[in-house]
């Protein structure tokens, strides 16, 4: 098997100090292979966001190690980490984190421009990513001129824009209706089939079911729930 894009070993995170201490995740082992789509489920407070933040180098683990594209995050300099966050990893946050003073297209183009891409090229890719999430033509609008679901789709476009290898999405479908949510999940799948890898947090079973593998966090520990099986040639057995 090829080297995983994301590898976590014995990763733990304790938030806070003293009586306020919370062991958010404990001893997590998790691999995401190239092209693989993994969904994380679990109750509120089970440590999903904590896990995702650590996977994306946005937060440091208290114990254990994380490798992204084979590089141990603990060995990287601040500058190298910043570069990894800008170039290799795409984030879709639980809050949309759009900059209110920038238009939708500018928000999406921003990570590319930070990478040093020419603004006009970044702008073209941004428009393409917006079209993919069904917002072609809305690029000139500001976040406060968009509905909640539209803002969420802008945030998704920003996470997916450009050649990201690892997509990290925290409840990307929260503000979306079912049909739009399904379209976004299909988009994530397509990205994975084209070679990217994705780790997505969701509490919607029907959205988690789009993933190749569904894992569940409980009391800070991880358990595998289900792995996608190949589609059988005959579907007759399903419906008797």
């Amino acid at each position: 098997m090829s080297e995983p894009i994301l590898k976590m070993r014995r990763v733990g995170k304790t938030h806070g100090k003293g009586a306020q201490r919370v062991d958010a995740i404990i001893d997590i082992d998790l691999d995401v292979a190239p092209g693989e789509f993994v969904a994380i489920t679990g109750r509120s407070g089970s440590g999903k966001t904590t896990l995702l933040n650590i996977a994306g180098a946005l937060d440091e683990p208290t114990t254990g190690n994380v490798w992204v594209e084979g590089r141990d995050l603990g060995d990287l300099s601040r500058k190298e980490l910043a570069q990894l966050r800008r170039i290799s990893v795409g984030y879709v946050f639980q809050q949309f984190n759009l900059l209110p003073a920038l238009t939708a297209a500018e928000n999406v183009a921003m990570p590319l421009e930070l990478d040093g891409m020419r603004p006009s090229d970044a702008r073209l890719l941004a428009e393409k990513a917006l079209a993919e999430v069904g917002l072609g033509g809305a690029g000139h609008r500001y976040p406060d001129q968009l509905s909640g679901g539209e803002q969420q789709r802008v945030a998704i476009a920003r996470g997916l824009v450009g050649p990201r290898k690892l997509l990290l999405a925290d409840e990307p479908t929260g503000a979306l209706d079912e049909a739009t949510g399904e379209a976004i999940l299909q988009l994530l799948r397509d990205r994975c089939e084209a070679g990217a890898s994705a780790l997505m947090v969701t509490h919607e079973p029907a959205f988690a079911a789009y993933a190749d593998r569904v894992v569940r966090l409980r009391d800070g520990k991880i358990e595998e729930i289900s792995v996608r099986r190949p589609v059988p040639s005959s579907t007759a057995d399903l419906i008797s």
Binding site: P205, A206, A208, I225, S226, V227, R228, R229, V231
Partner: peptide
């Protein structure tokens, strides 16, 4: 969950 994955697929 396995069945749901299957249906979605």
């Amino acid at each position: 969950m396995g069945l749901l994955q299957h249906y979605v697929q």
